[in-house]
Amino acid sequence: MLQTAGLRPTRQRMALGWLLFGKGARHLTAEMLYEEATLAKVPVSLATVYNTLNQLTDAGLLRQVSVDGTKTYFDTNVTAHHHFYLENNHELVDIPDQHLALSKLPEAPEGYEIARIDMVVRLRKKR
């Protein structure tokens, strides 16, 4: 998969790839993946995890989803879909309705086109 995406399959990329893609579709932050790698005895730094996640995103193998200015998730499902963000759990979950659509899109400024729309619906427990 790494070679197909034009990335050299280093030992660290391979190990992180197994952790990322070996459990099906998931949403992880860099810190979550670093913790998994540490528990799995994969010797990587947090900087290497960030670099690898960004390289995999640039190669089209991951999708980056920003929840707010401080939290970014990496999604192994790169198909067009939207998300619920469970505020109480700090968890990102796919919205199951693939036919969800916005009724009106804004005009892109001159010289630009809309590349993708990421909708994140924030949820919290009722009080």
Rank of each mutant, 00 (worst) to 15 (best):
L2Q: 05
L2F: 09
Q3A: 05
A5M: 08
T10G: 07
R11N: 12
R13P: 12
L16H: 03
G17A: 01
W18M: 00
L19N: 02
L20I: 04
R26I: 12
E35T: 13
E35N: 09
L39T: 13
A40R: 02
V42T: 05
V42A: 05
P43R: 12
P43Y: 09
A47L: 09
T48C: 03
N51L: 13
N51P: 03
T52R: 05
N54Y: 06
N54T: 15
L56Y: 07
L56D: 11
T57N: 08
D58N: 14
A59P: 07
G60A: 07
L61E: 00
L62P: 04
D68Y: 03
T70I: 09
K71P: 07
T76K: 02
N77T: 11
H81C: 14
H83Y: 15
H83W: 05
E87R: 13
L92Y: 01
D94S: 15
D97A: 09
Q98C: 05
L100M: 00
S103E: 15
L105W: 08
L105D: 12
P106G: 05
E107H: 11
P109T: 07
I114G: 02
A115M: 04
R116K: 15
M119S: 04
V120P: 03
V121P: 00
L123I: 07
R124W: 10
R124E: 15
R127A: 09
